[in-house]
Design a protein around this nucleic acid. Sequence first.
RNA 1: GCCGGGGUAGUCUAGAGGUGAGGCGGCGGACUGCAGAUCCGCUUUACGUGAGUUCAAAUCUCACCCCCGGCUCCA
Length: 471
Amino acid sequence: MPGNPPFRLYNTLTRRKERFVPLREGEVRMYTCGPTVYDYAHIGNFRAYVFADLLRRFLKYLGYRVVQVMNITDVDDKTIRRSRELGISLREYTRRYERAFFEDIERLNIERAEHYPRATEHIPEMVALIQRLLQKGYAYRGEDGSIYFDISKFKDYGKLSRLKIKELKPGARVRQDEYAKEEARDFALWKAWSEEDGEVYWDTPLGKGRPGWHIECSAMSMRYLGETLDIHAGGVDLIFPHHENEIAQSEAATGKTFVRYWVHNEHLLVEGRKMSKRYGNFYTLRDLLAKGHDALAIRYLLLATHYRRKLNFTFKALEDATRAVERLSDFAARLESYSAGAQKPTKLSRHVEHARREFESALCDDLDAPRALAAVFRLVREANRAMGRGEASMEDVKAVKRFFADFNRIFAVVRERRGELPPELMKLIREREEARKRRDFATADALREELLRHGIAVEDTPRGTRWRWRK
RNA sequence: GCCGGGGUAGUCUAGAGGUGAGGCGGCGGACUGCAGAUCCGCUUUACGUGAGUUCAAAUCUCACCCCCGGCUCCA
């Protein structure tokens, strides 16, 4: 897009903001670490998905074709254990949470990725990748029959997390030695079947067992995006060991760069504390919606802090976000109902251009959403002022609408108008206006109450009565 | 132990040498029959503390205080 500053992204690999240029012109291939479907996802998880969504939407705004893959991890220790506890099949168990996941992301206005591969449906790809690693001498079979990646063979090991293997905390490695690994840091590519796996196993050339966790992302991303991808996104906690291991497996197998830009979102804190399932201080999206909170406000809250900063989730902040979303939504409604005689652009049109430049340069600077939002709100004030005074021309309003629509294509936080007004409600509005003309305010107020019960808020302005949908 | 991120007005968030910060809240005002939405003004010349560099520091340097995270399943 000419005129834009270059899009720069912070690459965890280099620890610098880098100009983003995809490998293939006009197309971005990105992979996002998706959910392990063993429970309802919590809002911390959604920060990662909402962030990836912002990234993909902005790339599209910049004119790229985006091919995004998000894995569904539907086999691991937890899913196996819990499905067995419930006495149902792994598939039945994981599909339940997979469905919930898709419901949740829809509530949050997260665009669908192009592919959602399930781990259980890509066993052959994983087996093939592991065989390649065995052939090349990067993997070995342990005494328990499992297959491990030998990190000592991969000299770049640690380049992403910048951890030196020797310096890792002593306590952590001792505990790991219960496995039949040659080196405590080696990780499993293939786990040989054991008692607690029950009927969950695959008979493959590697033996009877199931894949390790890390291998699925390498195998599935290569299957859908090729051996080198542009962007790989995920939470900071995945940098080590998961992403480090992905690099090791993938690059050892292909000899090529696996990922060109690694992007990681920071964690979310709840009332100042790390949120995790272990602490039990987590909220699922369902929890919050059940308490009456608005999905768009949650989305807004997740986007209103820069993605590389810790986000402190509090209910006060959620209330604030709710109001901010209302302000934007009210503004959108006002744009729709505004009319003026003047056609020629006024200085408001210049404000729109200015806001757009600010907006774009903020997002181009490593997706600085808070700065982009500030530009939007500044314009909202300018436009409200101009419309309030009747100074805005129709040309201005068109320009504002275009910008606002683009803004919302990226942020997706403005409440949609819920279609046209039913005729019977339109009739009530007219009756109320007549009552007001007669100065029969008792009737007018009663009608206003009634409309509100139907979700319609009416407002009297110097230029006549306006109505809008209320949530 | 080894790495790393922060502390910005009432509050939450941007900014990272000079160019109007934004949201939310509070108070007052304009508009209105009332309400709401909106606008204006105030809260507000804010940057953890102490030194230093500089014509200029929230931004750079050093020291210190406080909070949080990674090194282990985790977004």
